[in-house]
Design a binder for these strands. Structure first.
Lengths: 119, 119
DNA sequence: CGATACCCCTAGCATTCCAAGGGAAGCTTA
DNA sequence: TAAGCTTCCCTTGGAATGCTAGGGGTATCG
């Protein structure tokens, strides 16, 4: 499958990963799959994007990692949300929603503002 | 006024600028004001963000620039959409809407996918 | 036994947003 | 008239981070 170019990812990637872990601990590969599934194949994380992001989130104390065994009995590193991670997720979702709403206002406007309003 | 941090801007900035010019030619300062107004003060473009972006769009042939006089009789550079710019705007709006919908599916999910689906 | 799926990681590149500067011209206000 | 604010334009350097392109290893299936 062709991997889509996701220039937008910046700013939403952390929230997507944190959200994926709300359902319980997952290893990296499963995080990618979850995000792909729930977005109906629209969001395909590259491994070179995912793993540095996981490390980043862990180093900020938003995730905790532990080695374990996957369903297929393979060695896998499981990530779980910390309380800080949960709080951060709430903040990021709120920020994202506000931003998306603001962009929508501009992009979907059907009338210009009054000339005086923009000088 | 405190300027909001807009990490998300990446990927939407071009669309926002192109959309601002749908209503007619504007100079840089007015573009900022229009986007601020129509987003209810949520989107505040920094000048160091705006002017390089305008140059970028012009160099791609999506905008054309011309010096003129603003309402206040000051020298100002007016930008206008080219036909290519108009096409690009349509594309970018569509891409943005698809991306925003995909992110919303993940961030606003109230149930995890089945375990088998993410392996 | 070869191919495929599962799993982890890194180095370097490219893009681009932002902070922080600088400049100039007109208007207001004390 | 001097100070200061607003309107307008622009550039430089730094920081962040997603992607490309590599590396590795293990289980399973045909």
């Amino acid at each position: 499958m062709e991997t889509a170019k996701l220039e937008f990812l910046r700013g939403t990637l952390d929230a997507l990963i944190l959200k994926a872990l709300v359902w319980g601990p997952l290893h990296g590969y499963a995080i990618t799959n979850l995000i792909r599934r729930q977005s109906d194949d629209a969001l395909l994380l590259e491994e070179g994007t995912l793993y540095p992001a996981l490390w980043r989130l862990e180093s900020k104390g938003l995730l905790e990692a532990e080695w374990g065994l996957s369903n297929n009995n393979r060695k896998a590193k499981f990530y779980r949300l910390t309380p800080d991670g949960r709080r951060q997720l709430r903040r990021e979702v709120a920020t994202w929603e506000a931003y998306a709403a603001a962009v929508a206002k501009v992009l979907e406007a059907t009338q210009p503002p009054l000339a005086e309003e923009i000088r």
